[in-house]
Design a protein around this nucleic acid. Structure first.
Lengths: 182, 182
DNA sequence: TTAAAATATGCAACAAGTTGAATATAGTCT
DNA sequence: AGACTATATTCAACTTGTTGCATATTTTAA
């Protein structure tokens, strides 16, 4: 149930309240690197969180743009978030299409799987490239980072590790398919 | 939408039809290493797949045990599965509680996160140990494996890679938290 | 002897996630 | 002028996933 927690986490780190639209943008970058969702789900969840007292909203009237509702986290929401952090995490259950396909790979010519693995690898390569770019741009000197920055750095390192691992496996599988199958 | 495909994939590799109960057991081991689900969802999905003509069922009456329904994949189901394999895969969207917690780690004492990371690491270590055991037991000589075995081996290698990657990141994060935070 | 585990299937309620569309304004591009 | 992009929110329908419960029999363990 961490969508609500992701939203609370995005709001807790801010001086200024955010609109649903702003949050949706955040979920396309920063927090979106480890929690994916849609704007529809965000709006629905914001309404729920406000009803539960975790958030408060304020209507902002605009002339040149559509009106918006901006949300702030309440003390209750913050407490709830902190309590959730202290609960032990279980790893997210694995669900990976590619592995299901691999499981019955014998149903198709191996070239199909090789092609798919190459595509997957390229997606992960592009992500890794982006993460390395961030690392060079914002995280060159670890000792100079503040608390928040250090935690962001750990998030980034996780992404780098994750993508590099995927690339490694894709390459291993491609080589194996090319060499060990006749 | 790969639950249906996981079920089809589990049935396609068999000479004998399986009951929902048998499938649920499979989803606790082999195919369950990369697709998690519950028996309730399996029964629901089996009914749906039969209605769609992907599966056929047969009622088996038993005296010493409860009666059961056993399912086989149809030609249509098999074709559907093969077509799905050929569609390009996108990586499963990332959703990781621990990373959301890390994102707002500054809200709690670092010892809490270190403790959680150690717990997580131990879970992944235990999985890795199990996978290495499988590797030694069933996959020692790659050249002697048949087609199916080779694909199972690739699945196993993915699991090993995945778990080892997690352990590596957990250790890195633990060290970083211990040393780089004052 | 009582409890539990294993075998076997399913319903119901609810929560979470996906997909498509509707609405409205302002600015930019062709 | 018409199309597209950005801003901003929401509804509706549907699929997928989770949790708790209900039922029934036989074997095994405490």
């Amino acid at each position: 149930m961490a969508l609500s927690h992701s939203i609370l986490a995005t709001l807790v780190g801010r001086a200024k309240p955010l609109s649903g639209y702003d949050l949706a943008k955040e979920f396309n970058s920063s927090v979106g690197f480890f929690w994916k969702t849609t704007h529809q789900q965000i709006y629905r969840e914001l309404a729920k969180l406000e009803k539960e007292g975790m958030l408060t909203s304020e209507l902002v009237r605009q002339k040149d743009r559509p009106d918006k509702k901006i949300y702030s986290i309440t003390d209750y929401g913050r407490t709830h978030l902190v309590e959730w952090i202290a609960e032990p995490s279980v790893p997210t259950p694995i669900k990976e299409d590619m592995l299901v396909k691999m499981y019955v790979g014998f149903l198709v010519p191996k070239e199909i799987l090789i092609g798919e693995l190459e595509q997957l690898r390229d997606i992960h390569k592009e992500r890794l490239r982006l993460y390395h770019e961030y690392e060079k741009k914002y995280f060159l000197d670890v000792t100079k980072m503040n608390m928040k920055g250090k935690y962001r750095y750990l998030n980034l390192r996780s992404g780098i590790n994750f993508e590099a691992g995927h690339i490694k496996w894709c390459n291993e599988a491609i080589e194996f398919l090319k060499n060990e199958f006749e």
